[in-house]
Design a protein around this nucleic acid. Structure first.
Lengths: 353, 353
DNA sequence: CTGAAAGCGCTAACAA
DNA sequence: TTGTTAGCGCTTTCAG
């Protein structure tokens, strides 16, 4: 393996000079040129491990996400990667599986590898422990999910507003027994999306006391906690549909659970928009699903991009006060929430063989 | 930061002994216990960077894939991760974007970081250059795609057989003008899937010379090369549908291009199975797409799992001869290939407003 | 602007 | 079994 010393010898300079050439130190043009030529001839590539040891900091950033198979997080990862690319920092992607233990192991590795910084969508709001990183002054940016009490920058989205708008849309379309399948208790996103759903319903009742009596079903407990996965969404929806007074619409707090809910709807021999289905987060190729799925569009890529830029600032030593950036979502109305009585019912029935 | 020396001092032993405790060297139980207690008290965690420098090899494995947003590759990545997990080796995921330059940069990083090994689905069969890794004796396993002339283990699947079976199925269902949208020229998977498609058609003509005359259309050039992405598939299909004698079925050589092809079919006011659509590779939530999509099921997770185990063997020093493992695919027939004359045509027409 | 020298934290001979 | 010692390849004072 050719080292900095080999290059130094070949170029007739000291190792220190070679190092300076590769790190933007002051070197006369002529010597720098000699060094570069020698390096090229010898096929020299700086050893990043040695560099990291000496600098007490490596040149990778860690990205911890809870589910690599969820397109929301892969889009977010692309955002991170594209932003990091511009500075040449590689991104190490770690899949925590919504599992606090696995997450902790990865965080320890981040410390032991002396990573330059970490971006994380935490597995748990309160149980995720960043103390190891804080001790080593490794900058962290929380993305998508909040972190309790951690002194870190955060890039989030308007979960509550998005959910509220989604639920209000369902109400406006005439659905009255609206269920909510939200995520695990520990995640901030679960709580916020549930809160938005509740607020929309509460506002509806408040605004129009006249209808409150007949809309008492809205207060019924149609809330389920699942795990942000397809199968969990399916089970939750099956459970909801088995209730004596079954819901006429469902708001799923993430894309995968919406897919599961759709499956359960089909399995029950029902169809949307008779049963309204609304997904918080785009389902890939949602346009191909029939009837097409109404979704809240999330800024997944931008979340990653923004988080990476915040982190890069911190790595570069910027000492601004901590920031929390909130990006906006938007509702994309398609067919699955057309309303409970749009006549699709009979057509749908006729189509089933 | 607490180092091995701090622990040694606290436990009243030498640094070498501490190192041995953490690396399975021979140490008397009593002293080992003392070391462990001291380490725990001091919150010591071995510095992996220093370790890597000393050992001339780090403890991460690199996984290079061409498209992190393709569920095929994320499933593969999970397989790799699950296998690696058991040995505690973290996996660094690098997205090459089907781009040989980006891929080359990541390969250089793999060398400079002295990675323990690399698993890669190469961006190009011939232009991907592994010489840098070979020089440093970093073991490599090719997964999903072949590598020209590289001395590496490989884990592939039966692309040609799978495509042949898929195309034969389309023929058996009565489609006669079958198009093929395959991937970029450089990828081995593109070539093999195209070859399987061609062989199925050739065999069909050979087997039944009587029909050959009327089935001359089968020889027409219905082949397109796209980029394994949704938009590429859409354009290719739109182009095919614009031909004077348009195809009555399409075999898409990967999942994303199949999605694009479906879009193009819809945009042309057509519908499958009137136009048969068959995807090489599962589309996530294909069951939700109406009509449901016939697909070749690929062993994506197992590809990753198997590749990781091969690599771990090499990292552990196993010196067996090079192996190529081929995993099998299977055809899952759904509605999109029911045949050109199943009566869906009129129903579909009736449903369009 | 340049070079000499020290040392980041760890492991692996070697000697005891 | 244990300790001593010598680096792994790099960056960074400090002198010159």
């Amino acid at each position: 393996m050719t080292t900095i010393n080999d290059v130094a010898q070949a170029a007739g300079v000291s190792p220190a000079t070679v190092s300076r050439v590769f790190n933007g130190g002051r070197v006369t043009a002529e010597r720098a040129e000699r060094v570069r030529r020698a390096a090229a001839e010898l096929g020299f590539a700086p050893n990043r491990v040695a560099r990291s040891l000496r600098m007490q900091r490596s040149s990778v950033i860690g990205l911890l996400i809870p589910d690599i198979e969820n397109p929301f997080f892969t889009a977010l990862a692309r955002g991170v990667e594209d932003a990091a690319q511009r500075t040449g920092l590689p991104v190490v992607l770690c899949n925590t599986d919504e599992n606090v233990d696995k997450e902790r192991r990865y965080l320890h590795i981040a410390v032991a590898e002396q990573m330059a910084g970490v971006i994380m969508a935490a597995a748990s709001r309160s149980r995720t422990d960043l103390s190891a990183l804080e001790g080593r002054r490794i900058p962290v940016v929380a993305v998508d999910r909040r972190l309790r009490g951690a002194e870190v920058d955060a890039v989030l989205m308007d979960n509550e507003e998005g959910s509220e708008a989604a639920t209000a849309h369902l109400l406006a379309r005439g659905y009255r027994r609206i269920a909510c399948i939200t995520g695990p208790q520990g995640a901030s996103t679960s709580q916020e999306r549930l809160a938005g759903y509740r607020r929309a319903i509460q506002d509806f009742l408040d605004d129009d006391p006249g209808t409150a009596a007949q809309d008492v079903d809205l207060l019924r407990d149609y809330t389920r906690h699942a795990d942000f996965k397809v199968e969990g969404g399916r089970r939750a929806m099956a459970d909801l549909l088995a209730a004596p007074q079954r819901p006429d619409a469902v708001f799923a707090a993430n894309n995968l659970m919406a897919v599961g809910a759709l499956q359960a709807v089909h399995e029950a021999g029902l169809e949307s928009p008779q049963i309204g289905v609304l997904s918080f987060g785009e389902v890939p190729w949602a346009p191909l699903v029939r009837p097409s799925l109404t979704t809240v569009q999330l800024p997944s890529y931008d979340l990653g991009w923004t988080a990476a830029n915040l982190l890069l600032d911190r790595i570069a030593g910027k000492r601004d006060p901590l920031r929390t950036v909130v990006l906006r979502s938007s509702l994309l109305v398609r067919e699955s929430t057309a309303g409970p009585t749009t006549g699709h019912r009979s057509r749908a029935a006729g189509r089933r063989q």
